[in-house]
């Protein structure tokens, strides 16, 4: 009997372990180009894993392929939330290579970047449909949030019943207007932050744990 009991115990330990090890939620960081998505992704990844996700840049469409950082463990109030972060290319309805020419990029390279950025948007939209369990929507708080892209994306996210956290980024810059973003999406909570300076990240992590834990 002792042998059977031992066997039963080990089986139940294995099955308990299987069910306890819940798949980490895949959280997509979405938003228009240059909102600070990669800066935020890097901030989160560095704070909790020590690694970065990808290069940050002031040039729009620097992120042209979705990048994932897996198993980011965020500790809040004594419990740990494990998420996969997906940093996505900025979503837009128009891509023009001329945007890149202002950043000292040659035309040939600019045209290539433009094509890659377009493919990146297609990929980001695909991930939103297929592969994301929750969304962190990043907006530049110094710009007008009432745009077609923002309205459409938030609408899609809502229609999918995905949990969404709206972040008003770049609060370190003059001209920041968090209220304007809160007014644009009153049905959602808006959290101000500066991903670059690391301002208000504590609240961001608390909300991530609350929304996606």
């Amino acid at each position: 009997m002792g042998l059977l009991t031992n066997l039963k115990d080990s089986i139940s330990r294995v099955t308990d372990g299987l069910f306890a090890a819940e798949e980490p939620k895949r959280i997509g960081i979405y938003g228009p180009p240059n909102a600070g998505k990669t800066t935020l992704a890097n901030r989160i990844a560095r704070d909790w894993t020590g690694d970065a996700v990808g290069p940050e840049s002031h040039i729009p469409h620097e992120t042209r392929r979705a990048r994932r950082k897996e198993n980011v463990e965020i500790e809040r109030n004594g419990r740990t939330v494990t998420i996969d972060i997906v940093d996505t290319p900025g979503v837009t309805t128009k891509v023009d290579y001329k945007e890149f020419l202002d950043h000292d990029i040659e035309k040939e390279d600019a045209v290539r970047r433009s094509r890659e950025a377009t493919e990146g948007v297609a990929e980001a939209m695909h991930w939103l449909r297929e592969d994301v369990d929750g969304v962190i929507y990043v907006l530049d708080s110094t710009t007008d949030p009432f745009t077609q892209v923002n309205t459409m994306l938030i609408g899609i996210i809502e229609s999918q019943d995905l949990p969404v956290l709206i972040l008003a980024n770049k609060t370190d810059l003059p001209g920041t207007d968090v209220k304007q973003i809160a007014n644009a999406f009153p049905q959602h909570e808006t959290i101000p932050l500066s991903a670059l300076e690391g301002e208000n990240m504590d609240e961001v992590y608390t909300k991530i744990a609350e929304y996606f834990g």
Binding site: V91, T92, T93, K94, V95, D96, Y97, K98, K107, A110, V111, S114, R115, T118, V121, A122, E123, M125, H126, L128, R129, V149, M152, L153, I156
Partner: peptide, 17 residues
């Protein structure tokens, strides 16, 4: 070349991409 217009809803709705 280098200038694109994207239909986000269409991109989202497509199963293939």
């Amino acid at each position: 070349p280098g200038k694109y217009e994207l239909n986000l809803m269409e991109l989202y709705d497509r199963q293939e991409y």
